[in-house]
Write a protein that binds this DNA or RNA. Structure first.
Lengths: 331, 331
DNA sequence: TTGTAAGCGTTATCAA
DNA sequence: TTGATAACGCTTACAA
């Protein structure tokens, strides 16, 4: 076991060239004489050299890496977003670093600090509530930043997202058009998107001359939580005949509760979810849910950053993607 | 907007001291005269200085950061593991960097390469199948490495995990003890843990004088997949009266299929899952599932690394944690 | 209490 | 085609 990792100098000493030649070989094998290249290749192989990008980051202040900050590591929604980002970054030879915040703006600040101290070339964020210090850091860092998932009213820099308020509004109008009279909004932990959907719900309700009713909690959303929220809704608002759920986890919990309590879906209770995850399709009847193009958002967010890093100016820097509804049968 | 991020030198120039004094202030405010400290603090505030840890990483070859490599970003299991790791690292002032592999050993190699090139001080891995190049890199890097989730037969370095084969063996014996005659193993994408559980299943079946039957697929596990696997099992092995599922997603899919097809659980079909996620508790009847202490694994894995980084030698470097079964009612 | 000098490992630049 | 040199921004060790 070596005392320390081999450096370019170590390789060069063995081969009998300077580290500059080895460095050249690593980045462009053709820029070195064939014979030299072969010798270097052999030594690299046996010594198990691991490249060290820290010096390059130091001298160029660039790391060929994007940072992605997501709220949660166990949510398919953000996994899809990351997948989309990496589809694009991989094509451009960029790496990605991932950190999660647990939906806390303070943790987000710390993670952004860490990523900036690692000199990421660009950042992709997923929440639009930032601390003052975060905003200051992002400004100072002067790197391209894209906020995703939602489109903030005043973006830090660029944005690719959905109009969640409009989606909520559309869903509720569909529910009302189906003949339901008393749709209730079920909300879990209040992130920004949850609140935007609520606003859309309320707007549609008010326009229809109805009183909006939201049943919410500060807990993480979960399947069991969906059951609890529905129980509370039915207890406090017995007329409830439809629920618009802030996400599919809650919607599934609602459906499971209905099965246990012999409520027919959608006859007794219409259910609409949000994000159209796989489990909804496995339910009986299949869950009606809002389709959100997460991977596309990720791809476009990364594309915006790549464009800026190439010194070009994107045509649009704030992009709103369309939403639609699955052909489920719970509405 | 500045052309580039302010450096310590910039701050120092404004204050009228050397960058060394500013550096001292940042790390230990008391090591600087009170008056000087106040001046520095003021300038730091207005200039929005962001610390740059790259030079320190370069000169000390240490980053106060651990790398965590997980297969998937949308699995509660790995989210819990990361949570456990971060509980420990936070106490020691260490940061974490996360990367995901999509269950590919080649991607794992690339991500490990990236993390090593960022000079992480330790690595936490979640799969035990590594490429030759990965093994060579880990050896050269000479940093503490912990493999988690399972306990490999020949660990790269240290390990904290569960005995999945034993867990599978125990589950199947419980199923047989309940009177079921034809338990089938339902497997999704074959990662190492899925195969270990299968081995335990087969061992128990053979010991009971029965023929093991595994129904599997190369696809990602999902709820819909659980339904499909069960349909295949029932079609090909009509005597099937119990299923041991490689994870809860598959088990839930099985339960949903049973609901649709009026199969009674556990009378017509017993179901056992793996990981004891939240959704299992929301089902009717509640899913019986193997409890895996993910957060504890993460904590212990990180503790091992912290111990080594402090120059001490851990008492045990290969730790097997206990498993148990939820008090569900599907068995 | 503050300052000076050297060094971390790579790459851009210029020279041979 | 290869080499010599300087630079990136910080911290350690030593000096004042």
């Amino acid at each position: 076991m070596p005392a320390r990792r081999p450096t370019l100098q170590d390789i060069a000493d063995i081969v009998g060239v300077t580290k500059m030649t080895v460095s050249r070989y690593l980045r462009a094998p053709d820029s070195v004489a064939t014979a030299t290249g072969e010798k270097i290749a052999a030594v690299l192989e046996t010594s198990g050299y691991i490249r060290n990008r820290v010096p390059a980051i130091l001298s160029k202040s660039s790391s060929k890496t994007l940072g992605i900050i997501i709220p949660s590591l166990s949510n398919q929604v953000f996994a899809d977003l990351v997948q989309g980002v990496e589809t694009t970054t991989a094509q451009h030879g960029y790496d990605t670093l991932i950190a999660h915040t647990g939906y806390s703006a303070e943790v987000e600040q710390d993670k952004i600090d860490m990523m900036l101290s690692y000199q990421v070339d660009g950042l992709i964020l997923t929440e639009s509530g930032h601390t003052a210090r975060t905003l200051q850091m992002l400004k100072q860092a002067a790197i391209p930043v894209v906020e995703t998932m939602e489109v903030p009213s005043s973006p830090v820099d660029m944005a690719v997202g959905l109009d969640h308020e409009q989606a909520g509004y559309d869903v509720v109008n569909r529910i009302l058009a189906s003949g339901k009279q008393h749709p209730v909004y079920l909300a879990a932990r209040m992130d920004t998107r949850t609140m935007l959907r609520q606003r859309g719900y309320e707007k549609a309700m008010v326009e229809a001359g109805k009183t909006p009713v939201t049943v919410s909690t500060s807990e993480h959303s979960s399947f069991t939580l969906g059951s609890e929220l529905l129980a509370r809704a039915l207890a406090n608002y017995p007329k409830t005949d439809a629920v618009f759920c802030t996400n599919d986890d809650v919607a599934i919990g609602v459906m499971l509760y209905c099965q246990q309590n012999k409520l027919r879906i959608p006859d007794d209770l219409a259910v609409v979810g949000y994000n159209a995850l796989n489990i909804g399709a496995a339910m009986t009847p299949p869950l009606t849910s809002v389709i959100t193009p997460r991977d596309k958002m990720g791809e476009q967010a990364a594309s915006l950053i790549m464009t800026v890093l190439q010194g070009e100016t994107p045509k649009e820097t704030v992009i709103t993607l369309p939403h639609s509804l699955t052909p489920g049968r719970t509405l």
